[in-house]
Design a protein around this nucleic acid. Structure first.
Lengths: 274, 274
DNA sequence: CGCCAGATTGACACGGCTCAAGCGGTGTGG
DNA sequence: CCACACCGCTTGAGCCGTGTCAATCTGGCG
């Protein structure tokens, strides 16, 4: 998955406008201008190819402008695992800001358009503009929260719950990215991708999706996910959107989710005492 | 687990000296002085009690000076999960720097001594001292990497592999913290804790440990872990220390691990190509 | 002495994995 | 235009790693 594949390096444009970074509350207009100027170029990558390589020297960050990508790691015995999935607008490899090599690759799950930002210029911006520093810090910490929730899913939830949780998360993130229509969104992941993200088998993903459809919660068909019963789905997945920390996002888009507010999100808050 | 428990608030001292934060390469002497002055107080917490509460307003950070702690979350149906374990010297709740409430609690696994750092003072330091800002940024990204590896463990490795991996990680971190003697270290976690950290059952943890002992890899007895065959253990767990990013730590202590360098760490490096 | 938390063991159930076959769409080369 | 290959999806049968439940054992401590 690493070489081959059209990987055109289009001359510089500025199209960060739809990215999560761009929408950060912490940024002022001047910050946004500065960021836009940082874009070194735009790459187009075919589905299935890595545009960031594991263990290779890293000196630039990547923002998915269009398409889906994922971080990807291999276990010693060759199983693939996707510790995080990037939807359009997401920053792929924040760690490249400080680390010289990454311990994951970033794979294009679909044909992708990717903005490339040179590390040095970003570091300079961070040093000189508190707003930009704050935005990156926020993104980093939010990412930690998402990873934590992800790992709890994998560690403690059943296949059905995990799938429900992931679909809820993607629904909310796609909505926040302005890429959802009502209760449905484009889901270009194959069942293999889902399996690698959830720590399951493709076969089992298939059966799980069928079960969720059979209970009338969702349908996934023709690369499109539709959520028919959000309250039930979020309850099943134990999903509460807090950990996504979307409150740092300028939200022109109204979130059309019926159970958006925590107190309506299903799971009763457990008393946490002896 | 939340109230009760001795929770003494000792008057201010300065004992960050052994913390990972303190050892960060990015800090100069003046930075360290400034950090030491930030300590608001020292708390002593009994084993089993939370010293950081989930969903409560957060306005201070905590460093475990002595003892072990862990972040802890509950699923809707009441299962406990420990997304990360803190050994002496570790920072517990970096997110409190920016987020007003945390989506996890921090539980003392043993009797703990904890330094408390007020968020506002830290933010001021970060704004005025690039070294301190860099140290925190590094810690945040390193945490990111650890969470990622943790979640891959839980998602893709068998119980034996997971256990092996965790023991390797703890061995290295304890060594880096100057708290290991040769190939053994204090491991005050109960089998229940291990289960909650690994996404397993206490019963299964027990059998797994026995199996590892039977193959001569380790012994865990009287709260002490001894690693008898590091190469085999790290190979079994697919452990490579890179993701811990300990290179940012001033390492007076020589790491006594035989297989410290990546190329001797067991797992053959997979050719990462098509 | 009695209590309790943690560790241990056994018997059994079950969720998710493995292996294997078949199906439908789609791109490609003859 | 067909043949073929390939990929993703689907389905079935059987197995195995972990979970569940429950009992017992151990050591520390009031």
């Amino acid at each position: 998955m690493t070489q081959g594949g059209r990987d055109g390096y289009v001359p510089r444009e500025k199209q960060l406008t739809d990215s999560r970074l761009w929408r950060s509350r912490q940024l002022g207009p001047a910050d946004r201008d500065a960021l836009a100027d940082t874009v070194e170029g735009i790459r187009r990558v075919d589905a299935g190819f890595d545009f960031v390589h594991q263990d290779a020297p890293a000196d630039r960050l990547h923002v998915v402008l269009d398409g889906w990508a994922a971080r990807s790691k291999l276990t010693e015995d060759g199983q693939r695992y996707l510790p995080s999935v990037m939807v359009p607008g997401d920053l792929c490899d924040l760690d490249a800001l400080l680390f010289d090599r990454l311990d994951y690759a970033v794979t294009a799950l679909t044909k992708c358009t990717v903005a490339v930002l040179p590390r040095e210029r970003l570091l300079a911006l961070i040093a000189s503009r508190p707003g930009i520093a704050a935005a990156f810090a926020w993104l980093g910490l939010a990412e930690n929260a998402v990873l934590t929730e992800w790992s709890m899913s994998v560690g403690r939830r059943s296949a059905h719950e995990r799938m429900a949780h992931l679909l809820c998360e993607l629904m909310v993130r796609m909505t926040a990215a302005g890429r959802a229509e009502g209760h449905s969104f484009d889901l270009p992941l194959t069942q293999n991708h889902l399996a690698d993200a959830l720590g399951l088998t493709a076969v089992h993903v298939n059966r799980t999706l069928q079960a969720l459809r059979a209970s009338g919660l969702i349908t996934v068909k023709d690369r499109r996910a539709r959520i028919h019963d959000w309250p039930a789905l979020s309850r099943m997945g134990g999903f509460r959107p807090d950990y996504l920390h979307l409150d740092a996002v300028d939200q022109e888009v109204e979130l059309p989710l019926p159970a958006w507010r925590p107190d309506r999100c299903g799971a009763p808050v457990l008393a946490f005492s002896t």
